[in-house]
Nucleic acid binder design. Structure first.
Lengths: 107, 107
DNA sequence: TTTTCATATCAAAATCGGTTCATGTCAATG
DNA sequence: CATTGACATGAACCGATTTTGATATGAAAA
C-alpha cells in the first residue's frame, strides 16, 4: 500500500464487502448513522477487530467517521448509498442491491 | 467443507466474485456460453488456475459445465443471469448490477 | 492533571486463498 | 489400445487477511 496506489479494481472493491462483519456494518449503517460502540453491540465482534474493519471500510471510501464527544459516529459515505427498491450500495464499478429486508447477522 | 454444509452467507457468495479472474469469467459468460479454452485465452490465466477458479464458480452455483466433445462448455447458471439495464448477477442474497459496458480485464 | 471512557493502532499469531506444479481423467483419433 | 488433446484434481507453497492482545490517543469527567 504505497502512496501512489493504482485504482482498485472492481473485484478489489467487492472484497471489502465480501466479509461478514464488514457487510453487516455497512448494511446497518444504511439504516442510519451509528456510533462505533453501537455497531460493536449490534455486530458481535471485539472492539479491536471492529475498529480494524471500520478502517478497511473507511479506506475504501464506503463509510465516513466523525468525532462525537468521546465516541465516533459512522455513516455510509454520501455517494455510496443509493435509493432503489430496498437498500443498495454503489461501488462505482457496480451496484449491489439488497431486497428490503433486515441487515441482521446473516446466516 | 464437509458433506453437511451450512448455507453460505451473503459475504460468502460475494467472496466468489471478489476475485479478479472469477469476476472476469462470469462477466464474459454473461455475454454467452464459452468453452474453457476460450475463457483461458480471454482471461489471461494458466490452464490449471482457470480450472480451479471454474470449480469455485461451479461450487457456488454461478456457472454450469457441460461436456462438448473433448472440450467443456461453460455458461452462467440459469437463475443467476438477470435482465436489467446492463448486466446483472443474482446471488440470491443480493443482486449486483453492472452498467452496460465491457467485461474486459478490469483495471 | 489524573482518571476514565471510547476508539484506534501496532505487532504477532493464526487462518485463508490464490498460485504453481505434477498428475489424473475422459473423449476422440490413429 | 496407445496417444494426444482438453480439462480437472491434489498437494505444497506463499503471501495476504483476519484475529488477538497489548498499548496508545483523544475527549470528557473528577
Amino acid at each position: 500500500m504505497a502512496t501512489t496506489e493504482t485504482q482498485p479494481s472492481c473485484s478489489d472493491r467487492l472484497k471489502v464487502l465480501a466479509e461478514d462483519k464488514r457487510l453487516q456494518v455497512v448494511r446497518l449503517l444504511l439504516e442510519g448513522p451509528k456510533h462505533a460502540g453501537e455497531l460493536q453491540r449490534l455486530v458481535e465482534v471485539e472492539q479491536s477487530l471492529l475498529s480494524h474493519h471500520l478502517r478497511v471500510l473507511r479506506d475504501a471510501g464506503l463509510v465516513t467517521a466523525e468525532r462525537d464527544g468521546k465516541a465516533v459516529l459512522y455513516r455510509v459515505a454520501p455517494d455510496v448509498s443509493i435509493r432503489q427498491a430496498g437498500e443498495a450500495i454503489n461501488l462505482g464499478c457496480c451496484v449491489l442491491a439488497f431486497e428490503a429486508s433486515s441487515a441482521k447477522t446473516g446466516g
